Amino acid sequence: MTEPAPHRFPVDVLVLLQRPDGQILLTERAGGIYLAGMWAVPGGKVDAGEDVVKAAAREVYEETGIILTRSELAFIGVTHHCPPHRDSRIGFGFLATGWTGEPRNVEPDKCSQLGWFLPDELPQPTMPYTAEIVRLHREKEAFSVHGWTS
Rank of each mutant, 00 (worst) to 15 (best):
L17D: 03
A40K: 05
P42K: 10
L26V: 03
A55N: 00
P4C: 01
G147P: 09
D47E: 09
R104C: 11
P4H: 06
F92Y: 15
M38Q: 14
S150E: 15
L114H: 15
Q124E: 14
G98I: 12
P108Y: 03
T100H: 15
A30C: 10
W148T: 02
G115P: 10
K140E: 14
V41K: 00
T149C: 07
A55W: 01
R135I: 02
R19C: 08
A57Y: 03
A40R: 03
P84N: 00
V145P: 01
E63Q: 06
L17S: 07
A142G: 13
L17M: 05
A56M: 07
G44P: 03
C82L: 15
F9T: 02
G43Y: 08
Y129S: 07
I66Q: 01
F143V: 02
R86S: 11
P108A: 07
A56P: 04
L118M: 04
A131P: 00
G115E: 12
T130I: 09
Y129K: 11
G31N: 00
K45C: 02
L26F: 06
V145I: 13
P20A: 03
A5C: 03
Y61R: 06
Y34G: 07
M38K: 14
S112F: 04
W99Y: 01
L122N: 08
D51N: 15
S144V: 12
E121R: 14
Q18C: 05
E139D: 05
V13F: 01
S112M: 05
A131D: 00
G22E: 04
F75K: 08
G49S: 01
G115M: 12
V46D: 04
R58Y: 06
T149A: 08
K45P: 02
N105K: 02
E3D: 09
V52L: 08
E62D: 12
G101Q: 04
P125S: 04
P10Y: 09
E139G: 02
T126N: 00
S150D: 14
D12H: 09
W39I: 02
I90D: 03
R70G: 08
A48L: 07
L122F: 07
T2V: 11
G31S: 00
D12K: 11
S150G: 14
L17P: 05
G93K: 00
D21C: 15
P123Y: 10
K54R: 14
D87A: 15
I33M: 11
T97G: 12
T149W: 08
E132N: 12
E102I: 13
I133E: 04
T69A: 10
K140M: 13
T27W: 12
E28K: 15
T79Q: 11
R19F: 07
G91Y: 06
I67Q: 14
T126W: 01
E62R: 15
E59M: 09
G147H: 09
E62W: 15
A56I: 10
F92E: 08
K54C: 10
P128E: 12
H80S: 06
R29K: 15
G22T: 08
F9W: 09
V53S: 03
R19K: 13
C111Q: 09
G93F: 02
A55P: 02
L95V: 14
E121S: 15
L95C: 14
C111H: 09
L95N: 12
P128V: 06
Q113W: 01
I76V: 15
W39K: 10
K54P: 00
L118W: 02
H146T: 13
W99M: 00
R29C: 06
D12I: 00
V15C: 13
Q23V: 01
D87I: 14
